[in-house]
Every structure is written in C-alpha cells, then in structure tokens.
C-alpha cells in the first residue's frame, strides 16, 4: 500500500502551513485598533490596573514572545475569551459549529444532486439544444450573488407560497431539514454553476479518449461505457475542484447564514464584527482555514482511492 504513504507524510508537510495560518491570524489580532485590555476592563480602569493586566497577559513582552504565548495557548486549546458572550471562544465555536456543518453538508448533497444530472445531460447532448441551454444557465449562474438568491427564494417560497420558514434552525433533525432547505438550496445553486461547467468539460474529454473507443470496439453497450468508465474518470477533476472551492463555499455559507439568521459560525462571525468581539472573528477565521487544510487532505486521499494511477 505504498501509494497511501502520503497519508502519514502529508500531515508533516501541513505543519508549516498551519504555522503560517496562526502567524497571519496573530498579525491580524495585533493590528486590531484599540487596546484589548482597555476594552476588557472597561472605561473606569486606572492606568496601574491596565499596566498590571498587560503584564499578566504578557502584552508588555516583545512581539515574538507574544507570538510564542499565542502558540502555547493554541496547543492548550485556548483561543481567548469572547467579550460579548463572556465565555471561552472555543466553547462558543463548539456550540455554533453544528449548524454550519449541517448547512454545508446539506448544501453539498443538493449541489451534487443538481450537478450530476445536468452535466451528464449536457455532455450526452453535446452541441445540441439541451447542452446549449445548460451551459447558458450555468454561465448566468456564475454571477448569482448568493445573498440575493437567498432573499429571492424567501420571497417566492416563504412569503408568496408560505412553504418554508424565513429564518432559524429548528430543534429536531427533521426541523433542521425543513429550516435549512432554502439556505442549502441557495448554496447549492451557486456552487453547481461552477461544478456543472467543469464536470461537463471533463466528461467530454473522457468521452473522446481512446479507452472509450476500445470499449466500443469490444462491443460494450454505450450505457455501460458511460456509467462504469466515463463518469468515474471524470469525477476526479470535479472532486479536486470541490476541494479548491471549499474556501469559496465557506465564504458563501457565512453570507447565507446571515441572510437566513442560521445560528452558525458565519452569522457569529459577522455579528462579532459589529460588537467588536475581535477574538471571536480571528478564532473563526483560523478554524475555517484549518478546516480547509484538513478537507484538502481528505480530497487527496479520495483522489488516490478513485484512480489507481495517481501517486502523491
């Protein structure tokens, strides 16, 4: 199984990237306007108290030592405290992360359900009406602002038709499915526009390749060739694209959570900006970045599993 050796070595290569992420986050935290201790203690604190707390948190030390403290705290799972919620940031993130994960997974399932049939139809009817139509729609779809699409769907499905709730998350699993239907559909439509174009292109490349001709010569039925060979091979670039687009997908989720008031990390991020709860903003940014590094690692594993020729 030496093809899968990278599963062991890649995490080691990921360490410098994770360091970089923490460094950028640290620089951002440091550039925040105003003195965090002053904000923490309130306006009535005296100079001596402020100086004492500065010393207590190590803020009077040189900047590289402060970065060291920052890293040390990270290894202990300490990302600071939220000023607004009066609790550790990590615990707060833990509370909110389920809604975001639910929304992302739900959206991804929808996106695949939309992308696969559309791309396959476009590729089968290459150069004919269904193909042109799907390409036109997906090119238009590239420019859909997700937040606007969300509001339009609310107007049509919630206000006019009264089918789905306008906001919230619900309590039970079924309620989650109901509440997050429109938000995840919004995310899926925006994502599918990118994926359909890509999957169609790679389907066409595969359909023209030599092994398809070989299968035909062997007398295999077209359906069999298409579903057993072509699709499997065309999925690899699309899955990679999905990994690349994850950052973009998370960005979309942040906006969509705000549009639909879903109590996830994205809406927390945006509301924390306005309440100046800076530690929360930076911690969420960092959590998202680490998530992307990990997911891309998983994408690599899936790629290798799908295609025996690929070695990483």
């Amino acid at each position: 199984m030496h093809r899968f050796n990278f599963v062991i070595f890649r995490p080691i290569q990921m360490i410098p990237v994770l360091f970089g992420i923490s460094l950028i986050t640290f620089i951002l935290i440091h550039s925040i306007p105003g003195d965090p201790i002053r904000i923490l203690l309130g306006p009535r604190a005296t100079q001596e108290v402020i100086a004492a707390v500065h010393a207590q948190y190590g803020l009077d030390k040189p900047i590289y030592i402060q970065y060291g403290y920052f890293l040390l705290n990270l290894t202990k799972g300490d990302m600071g405290r939220s000023i607004v919620f009066k609790m550790p940031v990590l615990a707060l993130i833990g509370e909110r992360i389920t809604a975001t994960l639910f929304l992302l997974t739900y959206g991804l399932v929808f996106a695949l359900a939309l992308t696969l049939p559309l791309a396959i139809i476009a590729a089968i009817y290459r150069g004919r009406f269904p193909d042109h139509f799907i390409r036109l729609v997906s090119t238009v779809g590239l420019g859909f602002p997700a937040f606007w699409l969300g509001i339009m769907m609310m107007i049509v499905f919630s206000v006019w038709l009264g089918q789905f709730p306008v906001s919230g998350y619900g309590r039970t699993f079924v309620q989650h499915l109901h509440h997050l239907f429109l938000p995840s559909l919004t995310i899926a439509i925006a994502l599918s526009a990118v994926l359909v174009r890509n999957l169609r292109a790679s389907l066409l490349v595969e359909m023209d390749s030599d092994y398809v001709a070989a299968c035909r010569a062997k007398g295999l039925p077209e359906r069999w060739i298409f579903y057993r060979h072509v699709i499997r091979n065309s999925l690899i670039p699309t899955i990679n694209l999905l990994g690349v687009n994850l950052g973009w997908l998370i960005g979309g989720t942040v906006v969509i959570e705000t549009v639909f008031s879903v109590p996830g990390l994205g809406s927390l991020l945006v509301s924390s900006i306005f309440t100046r709860d800076y530690m929360v903003v930076m911690a969420i940014t960092m959590v998202f970045a680490c998530a992307i590094v990990i997911v891309n690692f998983i994408v690599d594993i899936v790629t290798v599993a799908l295609d025996p020729r690929i070695e990483l």
Partner: peptide, 16 residues
C-alpha cells in the same frame, strides 16, 4: 498559507 484561508472570510477579517 494564503490559499488555505477561505478568501471571503479573510477579506472580512482584514476589513474588520
């Protein structure tokens, strides 16, 4: 490192 940040989120963090 830059590519591992979701760029809209990084954008928001910098604007903050």
């Amino acid at each position: 490192v830059m590519l591992s940040f979701p760029w809209l989120v990084l954008l928001i963090a910098i604007i903050t």
